[in-house]
Design a binder for these strands. Structure first.
Lengths: 125, 125
DNA sequence: CCAAGCTATATGACACGTCATTGAATGACA
DNA sequence: TGTCATTCAATGACGTGTCATATAGCTTGG
């Protein structure tokens, strides 16, 4: 039974999807073009950049993004390969790692964040 | 320069991401578990189901979802393999195809739509 | 202090989406 | 009508995400 309430829900959902994909797509393409990193890479970079504590963070990153633990691990692989972050072993728990921006990483993050914020503003109104 | 406006934007964006992924994820897992189709498959099924005209529709589907043309093509592959839709050649333009639900497709769509709507209501409030 | 279980991260197999390209059909225009 | 550009859909190569599992280190109860 297709109620009008159902139709409303579906319309609402499609509009969410649409604006989500448009925004994410625009940011992703812009970052890719100008800084050669994808949106997920940037978002991890952004999380690392805003972490002030020296805590062990691979774990805590996982809690602050919808990405899977293994997705985070692979994104960090790429960031590390690109020389933007480095994994530091953690003295008090040797299973854990924490991440540090390299100088290159910090520099790139600063420019990319400007772009990111601008596109958010443009797309979220 | 990180303004508080920037922080607001970022918070807003993360909250959108979060609710988008939670909703999409919940629906996807439920449909996968109960009907053995993913969210994208369902959404194409849903679009086909609500198309009344007998127009050639592969094309028009592409305009009603954020999916790529090639993504749509592959989703339809899977739906066809699963016996839920069939591709019909189009007399007035032989490049085009239109899609039809099979009986199985219609039946599955009816049950799955109930679940889909329920989860939307639950997640979109 | 050892065994059993738990936690943090990495990895391999696999599924799916994207981009670029192809093939086929159509349209447009000299 | 013959050429050239355009449009619709399919496909292959490739990147990245997920799930299940592996590995290593920590923890706890006997």
């Amino acid at each position: 039974m297709a109620t009008t309430r159902d139709r409303q829900l579906v319309e609402q959902w499609r509009s969410i999807q649409d604006s989500y994909f448009r925004t994410a797509g625009a940011i992703d393409r812009a970052l890719e073009a100008k800084f050669d990193i994808g949106l997920n890479e940037f978002e991890i970079l952004d999380l690392v950049a805003e972490s002030t504590d020296a805590a062990c963070r691979m774990k805590s990153l996982g809690e602050r993004t919808p990405m899977t633990q293994s997705a985070v691990s692979k994104v960090v692989d790429r960031l590390e390969k690109a020389g933007l972050v480095s994994r530091q072993t953690c003295a008090d728990d040797r299973r854990s790692l924490f991440l540090e921006l390299t100088d290159a990483g910090r520099a790139l993050h600063e420019s990319a964040a400007v772009e990111h914020r601008a596109l958010l503003k443009e797309n979220l109104g």
